[in-house]
Nucleic acid binder design. Structure first.
Length: 585
RNA sequence: GGGUACUUAGCUCAGUGGAUAGAGCAACCGCCUUCUAAGCGGUCGGUCACAGGUUCGAGUCCUGUAGUACCCGCCA
């Protein structure tokens, strides 16, 4: 209905000028969806806004505007209500025609972007030599959903995995392994990843406690950075091992990423320093090269520096992020850079973006945006941990979700005396478990902290993945029972809306394109979740009130189309969240 | 100390400057001879943290206060 709104908006703008003169040219008619279905489909709030400017009562303005407007081809007669709201109800024939258009479209009436943007979505970004843990969950899931929505719009999306494959951590790890397990530095898979993680923790401990070790580790970083062959080989071995482990999780989650780690930008770091130097932004302070920031101060009120090159000559992550911005805009040609990381990095990104802007790297028309999300907390409201106090491995978390979904399914099969194949049970519990985790995360406003609960996300009722999967399954049930091929309902189908629940469902279906536009702008996947949940509710209400297969023609076919549109919308919407549907469950 | 975000029903959370602030869960009451009841309907539940301000209109914008979380110089 994007086109409908655009059309209404134009007609309102014209009518405003006709009624009140050029004084109101270009005024936004403030068309929004109504807050309550009893007010119709859309409302204009412009009369209240113009009251002061025109020196007239809002209702009088509304009245004049309504006299001027002719929307009889689209709408029922306009109504003025309350202080001066103009309520717009679309004609039933119009809704029916729009549904027919949607039905015929393989994109459900959602247009592709007119001029596709080059968009880079930077998400997931685990660290080499560490296991992916629950902290990576949100970035991975949210980033993937955002990328999918933009891809569906036809944007040219590059999904980048900015893995932590460089820096001090490797100095620590290599130095430590030289001492305790040199074989790991020369032989592939001499250690399994679990051991590597243990070694990493021990190395970190040494680094924090032992100044001599710290120095050796720093020196090792310099050696690595200078291109030393032995170090380079060890580094590559470690990276490969981690990479394979990450991939099993991405496969499990059905998520696709292009790896371009921090090390990728090594050749460009010196260029960052040179550029900043040339721009006159670089200041040497206590041996480190810094850019002093606007609007960031320490406790004495002095401007804070962003360290670009450390006193030992090394670079840190700010430098890498700056090099990445420069590369992504100037070499990749990106128009939009999206960083999906936890909100704790908000400061860091604000600082880096500021420096990039001042250095002139962010070209006109390029949007650089941090998409932050809150912490994953346990049911106690604290950072999610295992019972023993460790961070939760992502692998374990996903396995548990699947196991719980499976236990749940098997209980139900027993209760209902159903018999299903092993393959069915495996597949269903996998989809239900993974979807539940994804949906629980995505359905929350990403900026707030989120309380992780298996019980809630796997619940069969409420705003959960299983509820929506079930709505889809119900529709497939109709198709099986009636031997209906939704893809072949007939060429010239009439959709007829009579019942309240049919109207409510139809109106909701027609909002899909507006919603996708919004999500792609605001990058808030929870809005898509909300839409799909409401769609499922409205479908279930329709399903409850309106028999489909037993209905007389032409109602029967019309209802079948509503079912088909609902199923396709659910399938598409869920796919944009990275969630697959099931035919039966 | 500075910065940022948050505070909405018993719990978990939505909420785009517009009309009587909404869901889900929990509790209680109904509805399966029917396309899967994993569903639907209903009841109960609110000082939108507090105090000011802007506005025709504020949960939403601004200021202040309180509480909570996160970030703050060579880790990422």
């Amino acid at each position: 209905m994007n086109a409908t709104i655009a059309d209404l908006k134009n007609r309102f703008e014209d009518a405003l000028v006709t009624a009140f003169g050029d004084e109101v040219a270009g005024i936004d008619p403030l068309l929004v969806p109504t807050s309550n279905p009893k007010f119709g489909d859309y409302q204009s709030n412009v009369a209240m806004a113009l009251a002061k400017k025109l020196g007239k009562a809002p209702r009088a303005i509304a009245d004049e505007l309504v006299q001027t407007l002719d929307l009889s081809d689209l709408c029922e007669p306009l109504e003025i209500a309350g202080p001066g709201f103009i309520n717009i109800t679309l004609k039933t024939e119009y809704l029916q025609a729009q549904l027919a258009v949607m039905q015929r479209s393989d994109r459900l009436g959602v247009e592709t972007a007119e001029s596709p943007q080059r968009v880079i979505v930077d998400f997931s970004s685990p660290n080499i030599a560490k296991e992916m843990h629950v902290g990576h969950l949100r970035s991975t899931i949210i980033g993937d959903a955002i990328a999918r929505v933009l891809e569906f719009q036809g944007q040219d999306v590059l999904r980048l995995n900015h893995v932590g494959d460089w820096g001090t951590q490797f100095g620590m790890l290599i130095t430590y392994l030289q001492e305790v397990c040199p074989a790991a530095l020369t032989t592939a898979d001499a250690l399994d990843l679990g051991d590597l993680v243990t070694f990493y923790k021990k190395a970190k401990q040494r680094f924090d406690d032992d100044p001599a070790f710290q120095e050796a580790a720093r020196q090792q970083v310099v050696t690595l950075q200078s291109g030393d062959q032995k170090s380079d080989r060890a580094w590559k071995l470690l990276c490969n091992q981690s990479r394979r482990e990450f991939q099993t999780i991405y496969d499990l989650l059905d998520i696709c990423l292009t790896e371009r780690g921090e090390s990728f930008y090594n050749p460009y770091l010196q260029g960052v320093v040179d550029d900043l130097e040339q721009a006159g932004l670089l200041v040497e302070d206590q041996g480190a090269k810094c850019v002093f920031l606007d609007g960031f101060t320490n406790r004495e009120g002095e401007r804070l520096p962003l360290i670009i090159q450390k006193s030992d000559g090394g670079y840190n992550y700010a430098t890498t992020d700056l090099a990445a911005i420069r590369y992504r805009i100037h070499t990749d040609g990106a128009n939009r850079l999206i960083y999906v990381t936890d909100v704790g990095q908000a400061n860091h990104f604000a600082q880096v973006f500021q420096v990039a802007r001042r250095a002139g790297w962010i070209l006109d028309g390029v949007e650089v945006v941090h998409v932050p999300f809150g912490l994953v907390q346990g049911e106690d409201g604290k950072r999610l941990k295992t019972r023993s106090g460790e961070t939760v491995r992502l692998r374990d978390l996903l396995d548990e979700a699947i196991a719980r979904a499976r236990a749940d399914l098997e209980t139900r099969l027993k209760e209902e005396d159903r018999h299903e194949s092993q393959a069915f049970i495996e597949h269903t519990s996998h989809i239900v478990g993974i979807s539940a985790v994804k949906y629980a995360d995505l359905s929350q406003n990403r900026t707030s902290n989120y309380i992780f609960s298996f019980d809630k996300m796997l619940a069969l009722q409420g705003n959960t993945a299983p509820y929506m999967l079930y709505a889809y399954v119900r529709i497939q049930g109709i198709s099986r029972k009636g031997q209906i091929d939704f893809g072949n309902l007939g060429a010239d189908i009439k959709i007829l809306l009579h019942e309240e629940t049919e109207f409510a469902l139809a109106r909701h279906l027609l909002q899909l394109d507006e919603l996708i536009g919004q999500v792609s702008q605001e990058l808030m996947p929870n809005r898509l979740c909300q839409y799909l949940f409401e769609l499922s509710q409205k479908f279930n209400q329709f399903y409850d009130r309106c028999p489909v297969l037993q209905a007389e023609e032409p109602t029967r076919t019309s209802r079948l189309v509503l079912c088909d549109l609902t199923a396709r919308t659910l399938k598409l919407g869920l796919s944009l969240l990275g969630i697959q549907v099931l035919e039966r469950m």
